[in-house]
Design a protein around this nucleic acid. Structure first.
Lengths: 101, 101
DNA sequence: TATTCTAGTTTGCATTGCAAACCTGTTTGT
DNA sequence: ACAAACAGGTTTGCAATGCAAACTAGAATA
């Protein structure tokens, strides 16, 4: 009980932008590309890029780069670790805050 | 739907320690003192002090300083704004993540 | 009265987040 | 064909944040 669950939350998820990114990716049925993410979240390209890099380094997303019609196309998927950490985030926050209704 | 709710979360709550502090205070029926908070959360005194200062600046907690048996005693309460922001946090996170089970 | 203890606060540095500048290649205009 | 604009990101530089260690002030202890 209490706030000790909060300690188990992955530190990288304690950021509004990254949590929003992960929420998006964990919902998506298919890989999401840079442009779509940019459209949904209110971020600059630079920030989106660095957040994705960090999420990849932590193993929460997978980045794939291909070329489509001669243009580079980068897509992102939530890894199973990412899904696990997002579930854990929700559980931890509910457990810590739910009773304080 | 989606991550736009996350934008409404108070920025100061995007920190593990401060969220834990607020979870604690929003549950408490009476003012909580420095020492108790320190015991429950795993923080140094310095960090607890600065976090409390920031939470006060944002109007999320109220700090009261008195003397009890000649010793200084600082207690903290969650303000109504603080309770509101905590409720909002929970609602926003659930709304953004719940469907991704 | 010197030392230690309690209860915090302030400081200094290392890390983070952001926006702006940059890079690589492609399309458009002339 | 060449220059200018565009697409898709990445890197950089600076300002803000978080942390632990150092500090302060008063109270208890020896």
């Amino acid at each position: 009980m209490g706030s000790s669950e909060l300690l188990k939350i992955h530190p990288t998820l304690f950021d509004r932008a990254r949590l929003a990114i992960m929420a998006h990716l964990s919902l998506a049925k298919r890989p999401v590309d840079f442009k779509s993410l940019l459209a949904e979240l209110e971020l600059t390209r630079g920030n989106l890029s660095t957040h994705m890099k960090k999420l990849e380094e932590d193993g929460l997303v997978q980045i794939d780069k291909t070329f489509v019609e001669r243009k580079s196309r980068t897509t992102y998927c939530c890894t199973s670790k990412g899904k696990k950490e997002i579930r854990n985030y929700l559980v931890a926050v509910e457990s810590a805050l739910k009773s304080s209704l």
